[in-house]
């Protein structure tokens, strides 16, 4: 991924000099060949090595999501700049009048000592505002920032389809030539429930609903995989990122020129139950092999 970015690193000069770009796959030597034909007849040829990857199939359906928000990317990126760069997750709480974004504080951190950032966006600022369930969702900020950057550069509004906590949130950008779906995992309820204890009145949600949804997830998880049965004690510090980042991102790039760019960004699912729901179909293969590439994930 990084190497592909380095080819297209200096965009301004690329726009000035490159006349044609040819991307091909040399299967004999296992190289991704990117040729840039520049001004003055200069040819740049990059032969990039690549690695096999398992493609992820995220299970989601935007049509059935009860909640849809649509907003200009600018609005959301202006909102997230207020969060510290080191923050890993944010919580989005939608209510009929406004959307509140706040930093997610892990369980073991004393909320009285942690820095809390919270801001609200009023309903008028959104282009579309459809809410049926009022569950807060918590997702990775880093990936969210990435997709905001992408959406902002293309000047398109972002649609957010989400359901309850623990269900994937789909962020999509649509255009006539491009349709990008970013699927982010959200933290499942067990974490949120414990957090809502910390926050007390801060969460105006209906707990019964939550548990119902939770049970449902759990059932599905049980059906899809056996591994889900042995839920480990939940750990809010996500030591084991179960899915390899680089492979995912490479996949996104290889289909970059197609009309539809599908990009699933792995979240930091908190426990196996949740993970098996989201990525149920590939859980078995995402074991040891996936772990090996984890090191590269950190700054991919």
């Amino acid at each position: 991924m990084k190497s592909v970015i380095s080819v297209f690193r200096s965009l301004p000069s690329l726009e000035k000099t490159v006349e044609k770009c040819l991307i091909s796959l040399n299967t004999n030597s296992s190289r991704l060949v990117i040729q840039l034909f520049c001004k003055y007849g200069v040819t740049k040829t990059h032969n990039l090595s690549y690695q096999d990857c398992e493609s992820l199939q995220a299970l989601y359906n935007t049509d059935t999501c009860p909640n849809v928000l649509r907003a200009p990317a600018r609005l959301l990126s202006d909102a997230v700049v207020h969060f510290p760069l080191t923050l890993s997750e944010v919580t989005l709480m939608a209510s009929p009048g406004k959307v509140i974004l706040k930093n997610y504080v892990e369980d073991e951190v004393d909320p009285n000592k942690a820095m809390l950032t919270e801001l609200s966006l009023s309903r008028e600022e959104f282009l579309e505002y459809q809410l049926q369930k009022l569950d807060p969702i918590t997702f990775c900020l880093r990936e969210f920032r990435g997709l905001l950057g992408f959406a902002e550069s293309s000047g398109l509004p972002i649609s957010i389809h989400f359901d309850c906590a623990g269900c994937p949130a789909v962020f999509s950008v649509d255009d006539t030539v491009l349709e990008a779906h970013f699927v982010l995992a959200t933290l499942s309820d067990t974490d949120l429930a414990s957090q809502s204890q910390n926050y007390g009145a801060a969460l105006p949600n209906n707990n019964d609903d939550d548990f119902l949804g939770d049970d449902l997830d759990y059932m599905i998880a049980m059906e899809t995989t056996l591994a889900g049965a042995s839920s480990p004690p939940h750990s809010p510090v996500f030591n084991n990122r179960p899915l390899p980042g680089p492979t995912l991102e490479e996949q996104a790039v290889s289909s970059g020129d197609e009309d539809e760019e599908e990009r699933e960004v792995p979240g930091t699912p908190p426990n196996k139950k949740f993970r098996s729901l989201f990525f149920g179909s590939i859980l078995q293969s995402s074991g040891q092999a996936a772990q090996e590439v984890l090191a590269e994930d950190s700054d991919g």
């Binding site: 990084k2 190497s3 380095s6 190289r31 991704l32 003055y40 007849g41 200069v42 040819t43 740049k44 040829t45 990059h46 032969n47 990039l48 090595s49």
Partner: peptide
């Protein structure tokens, strides 16, 4: 390099 090889070719009749 680590990511693969890169070649930069200049034709001899280039204006450069």
């Amino acid at each position: 390099g680590n990511a693969g090889s890169a070649h930069l070719d200049y034709p001899k009749d280039s204006d450069l």
